[in-house]
Amino acid sequence: MFYLGTHKRHWVKTAGVPLFISVRTWREGVTLPRATVRHAMDSSGFTEIQKHGQWTVTPAQYVSEVRRVRDEVGLLDWAAPMDWMCEPAIIHGGWHGGQYFAGTHLSVAEHQHRTVDNFLHLRTLAPDLPIIPVLQGWEVSDYEHCADLYARAGIDLPAEPIVGVGSVCRRQATAQAAAIITTLATRGIALHGFGFKTHGLGICGSSLTSADSLAWSAHARRRPPMPGHTHKNCANCQPYALQWRTRALNGLSPWNQPTLETSEGPKK
C-alpha cells in the first residue's frame, strides 16, 4: 500500500488514492471533509520534538484528535503513536541542514522506552482506535532491542496489522537503512516506511508492507508549474501529485507493485 502525502484535507474527497495526512493538518480544520479514500495519520512527532524537545500534546488530546478524524472523516486505516525519534539531531539539538533542533538530550534507549510506554498508554486509553506501534532506534541492534521491549510488554508485533519504522526516512537509500528494514522483516513484522522516496523504495520496498511519501511536493517546488497552471509552482497541486505518484510507482520493480488506480488497497 502506498500512501500519498498531502497537507490538504479536502484531498480525501477528490484524490482517489490512499493518502497520508498529519494530525496538524486535521487540527486546523473547524469542519472536516468526509473521506472517499482510505488514509493514514502522521502524529507529527518529528516536528513536535524538533521544535520543543518534548511532546507538548497530551496522550488524551491526541486520542481525542484521532477519534475525531476516525468518526468525522471516516476511512482511517491507522494513526501513528506519539513516538520519540532517535536521529542524532533530535537528541543532541542544534542546527542541522538549515533547521534548528531543540534537542532532548536523552539517550536512544530512553527514547525507545518512551515510545513503547506511549503506545501502551494510548492503547489503554483508546483500545478502539487503530493506533499502531512504531519501532525506533538508530543502529540495527537498537531496532531489535525496541522490538524486544514491545514483546516484553506483551505486544506481539507479528500479529499487528502494521508496524511503523521510525528514524529511517532521511537515510532510506543507505545500506544501513536496508539492513534495518530487512532485519525487522525477517521477524515476520508487517512494516510501514515513513517518508520514503522512490530511491529508498527501490532499495527497501520489497521488505515493506506499506509506505508513504510527500517527496512530490519538494520535487515540484524546484520546478516550474505544469503547463496551464498559473501558480508559482505545483508544490500543493493535486494533478502534479497524482502524476508523480504514477511515475514513481511505475518505476518500481514488479516485486510488490502497489495498485495504481484506486483507494481500494492491494489486490487479494
Rank of each mutant, 00 (worst) to 15 (best):
V116Q: 04
V23R: 04
A60D: 14
V108K: 00
E48V: 03
E72Q: 15
E72C: 11
V66F: 03
R114V: 06
H92F: 06
L106M: 11
E87N: 00
H92R: 14
G103W: 04
T36H: 12
V73T: 15
P18E: 01
G53L: 03
H39D: 04
H52S: 05
D83F: 01
L125G: 10
L122R: 08
T115Q: 04
E48S: 14
W26G: 02
A40P: 07
V23L: 08
T31S: 12
S107E: 08
V30Q: 10
L75K: 13
G93L: 13
K51V: 12
G16P: 06
C86Q: 01
N118V: 07
V108C: 00
T58L: 07
L125S: 07
D77G: 03
T31R: 13
K51A: 15
I21C: 12
I90V: 15
Q61L: 04
D83N: 05
V108A: 02
A109V: 12
A79G: 06
W84G: 01
G29Q: 13
E48Q: 15
G29M: 11
S44D: 15
V108L: 04
E110S: 10
L19R: 07
A80D: 03
Q99P: 04
A89S: 15
T25L: 08
D117T: 12
Y62W: 06
E28R: 14
E72H: 14
S107T: 15
A126R: 02
L32D: 06
G53Q: 10
A109M: 03
V30E: 09
S64F: 00
G74T: 11
V17L: 12
D77F: 09
M82I: 05
R27M: 14
P88K: 06
H111V: 01
W55A: 06
L120T: 03
G45V: 00
R24T: 14
N118R: 12
T47E: 13
V37S: 09
S64H: 02
V57P: 05
E72W: 09
F46G: 03
T58M: 01
P81F: 02
E110I: 06
D117A: 15
R38S: 10
N118F: 02
T36M: 00
G16H: 09
R67V: 08
A35I: 05
G93S: 14
T31W: 07
H96I: 09
R67H: 09
R68F: 10
E110Q: 15
V30K: 12
E110W: 06
D42C: 06
W84R: 02
W26S: 07
